[in-house]
Amino acid sequence: MKRLRLYVVFLASGFAALLYQVVWQRSLYAIYGINIESVTMVVTAFMLGLGLGSLAGGALSKDPKRPVLLMFAGVEAGIGLFGFFSLDVFRVVGQVTLGLSPAATGAVTFVLVLVPTLLMGGTLPLLVGYLVRESKNVGKSVATLYFVNTLGSAFASAAAVMWFLGHRGQIGTARVASLLNFTVAAIAYLQYRRSLAEPRPAAAVAGSEPAADSGPVADSEPAADAKATREVPS
């Protein structure tokens, strides 16, 4: 996948994630309250989900044979699917669980946001693993992916304030985010299919980086620049 396209879809992914975060927090606060305990519970649940998702994404990323783009497409589709129905799910679960103790409420909140945040948290390590195989530079790969993803979230935060929440409300904003996820998933999937059809470049097989490129990485992009084939100091 061309890097620029990868960056654009990851920016869109970050945009959608922040929209969800804003809307979901609002929705959960309406159910469980805006006292400091509830707010901390919700924020911590988000963080734990992202952290666990990061572990899962990292574990998946280490095998170069795994089709990263296909997994990324699946993750984005999963987030979009959950996002589409998320507010209804929160409302129903909230009605059922409102009378629970604070600890139980915390556990329910965690479970509620676990699925999407797990998926969201997995995307960065997944793509870092993918990009490092090309660039051979961890810092730059992390920096660039973190940059585009966070930039997407920054734009989303401003857009949510300036337009989305006031004009689309919570449901409309969540639907926009969901649509973005499905679009990202579709682009990633199409790219994956295209890479299956493309013959693998000889350089990737016979080049100087056997560890990174010798596996049947069906969705891996041919070396986008010289850095991908540069010798890595041990």
Binding site: L55, G58, N137, V142, V232
Partner: peptide
């Protein structure tokens, strides 16, 4: 990114090791 570049080798396990760094950052944030 700087700390990841310092501590993670650019190999197939880079993504996995980054996930530990990311998790540590999240645990610290929490």
């Amino acid at each position: 990114p700087l700390v990841a570049h310092f501590g993670i080798a650019p190999d197939d396990r880079a993504g996995q090791k980054l996930s530990y760094v990311y998790l540590a950052n999240i645990v610290g944030s929490a």
